[in-house]
Design a protein around this nucleic acid. Sequence first.
DNA 1: AATCGCTATATTTATGAAAACATAACGCTA
DNA 2: TAGCGTTATGTTTTCATAAATATAGCGATT
Lengths: 109, 109
Amino acid sequence: MEIKSRIWIEEKGKPFIGFGRINLLKEVEKTSSISAAARAMHMSYKKAWQLLDQMNKLAPEPVVIKNVGGKSGGGTQVTDYGVLLIQKFEELNTQCITFLEEEFKSWQS
Amino acid sequence: MEIKSRIWIEEKGKPFIGFGRINLLKEVEKTSSISAAARAMHMSYKKAWQLLDQMNKLAPEPVVIKNVGGKSGGGTQVTDYGVLLIQKFEELNTQCITFLEEEFKSWQS
DNA sequence: AATCGCTATATTTATGAAAACATAACGCTA
DNA sequence: TAGCGTTATGTTTTCATAAATATAGCGATT
């Protein structure tokens, strides 16, 4: 028996950040490219682009900054705010898992 | 911005109980019938039956007891173990939500 | 023994989300 | 100015899951 959980944050009832988006953000941070991140995650470029676009639209300030054309075709950078978001989310998730596992022990007895 | 969560319990890597199954169990408890519960939840009888069947198979002891034929065609009762499961799950879920909301306050500041 | 509402299960059909495919624009570089 | 890899976006196709449909069996009740 294992306790499992998922957490996410909504804005105006729409999904803002969750596991998939955070992982995508981390990959973009690593590669500075939406297409490279999508490839690495075996996700279509379109899907990745849409997720990031929605995040940007829902966020109080941009999570990524995208550049079209130019050196190496362009690229995408995660903003400081985006980096903070990753850190905060992962921290909260870890805390949640720890809490649940502790509680679940006493449930089983 | 709202923090959201889902918890569930797995057995051997397979979903054992989660929101949908708990709600179904509660409805079966109320109606003593899989078909009545399914109707109330706008779920197909087959889906409901399958969910309960899988729960029973994964559980250490039966969650529901089903009777075919007889008075009013038969029926299904939630066992004491099943009732306990509902209570425990809902309690754990409430605790999780409380915990997350508290943590999320300090995140935002 | 006929009826009734339920459990049990197989088969077919819909539906919605993801993937796949296609194409255009952009701007540095060579 | 031709080419490259990227962002940007529309359209089509697949696929997995849920819903719908169909049918059989059960057993107390009448």
